[in-house]
């Protein structure tokens, strides 16, 4: 582990951050009582960075991702995405921001079962009212290696192929930030590598920002920086770690 300092400067401090979290807290209230899932997280994600978030189960990783993407409102603190403050935006503005600036890939249930692969990929464009060009859809499908499967439905694809469709769908709008929550959680290592390679390419080639949550040190090693989350607080980070270094840091954290 290289650093455990309480402040986390962005990797490329010269540019305005793509995503800025400032003092995020999140408390879930339910009949069973209140849970502090996040207890004050401040971090700047630099433009074009690939960041992995790791931590024990229940440490607040998914909550962090959801608050950062404006899917959930933090209890306090501000989120700024590409210069737009997300707090207090209305649902429609937030939706438009989401479909233009963000891409999502999750562990499962990423696709609409009733639509073909082509239609799933074209959906975000259709929702903005644009008529998707066949060539554009074809291009992104080619990028993820699924050019022959445009007419299939999700049920006719393997898990890894479905994840690649989800990535193609996220790519087509050229979002500035990708959010992925355990995108390889249910895949074998070969397929995982393919998915992570695609995300890596997005940052390297197009300068897009990627934030992924993962349990897998091999997956985390694709990122230039790994953030460790513990009990709703950032507990440290590791830059350009190898899988074994990351695994060691994780087991330190879980002790």
């Amino acid at each position: 582990m290289t650093a455990t300092a309480p402040t986390y400067p962005s990797v490329v401090p010269t540019e305005a951050p793509a995503l800025l979290l400032d003092g995020i807290t999140k408390t879930y209230r339910s009949k069973a009582g209140a849970v502090d899932a996040l207890r004050g997280v401040t971090y700047h994600f630099a433009r074009g960075s690939f960041t992995a978030v790791m931590g024990p189960s229940g440490s607040g990783k998914s909550t962090l991702l959801q608050c950062a993407a404006g899917l959930d409102q933090p209890t306090s603190g501000t989120v700024v995405l590409g210069g737009t403050k997300l707090n207090g935006l209305n649902e429609v503005t937030l939706t438009k921001l989401r479909r233009e600036e963000m891409g999502f890939v999750f562990q499962a249930y990423n696709l609409l079962p009733s639509l073909t692969v082509h239609d799933n990929v074209a959906l975000p464009l259709r929702l903005t009212g644009r008529r998707p060009r066949r060539a554009d859809v074809h291009r992104v499908l080619e990028q993820v290696g699924l050019e022959g499967k445009a007419k299939r439905r999700p049920a006719e694809l393997s898990g890894g192929q479905q994840q690649r469709v989800a990535i193609a769908r996220a790519l087509i709008t050229r979002p500035s930030v990708f959010f992925a929550d355990e995108p390889t959680g249910a895949l074998d290592s070969g397929t995982s590598r393919q998915i992570l390679g695609l995300l890596r390419e997005a940052t390297d080639r197009a300068g897009q920002t990627v934030v992924i949550v993962t349990h897998d040190p091999v997956a985390a090693a694709y990122a230039e920086r790994v953030l460790f989350l513990s009990d709703g607080l950032l507990a440290g980070h590791l830059d350009r770690g190898t899988p074994s270094q990351i695994a060691a840091a994780m087991s330190d954290l879980e002790r």
Partner: peptide, 16 residues
Amino acid sequence: RREIGLLRLVGATPRQ
């Protein structure tokens, strides 16, 4: 519910 949530996630407005 889940499917509709997904639609919202990829950018459908409540109105849509």
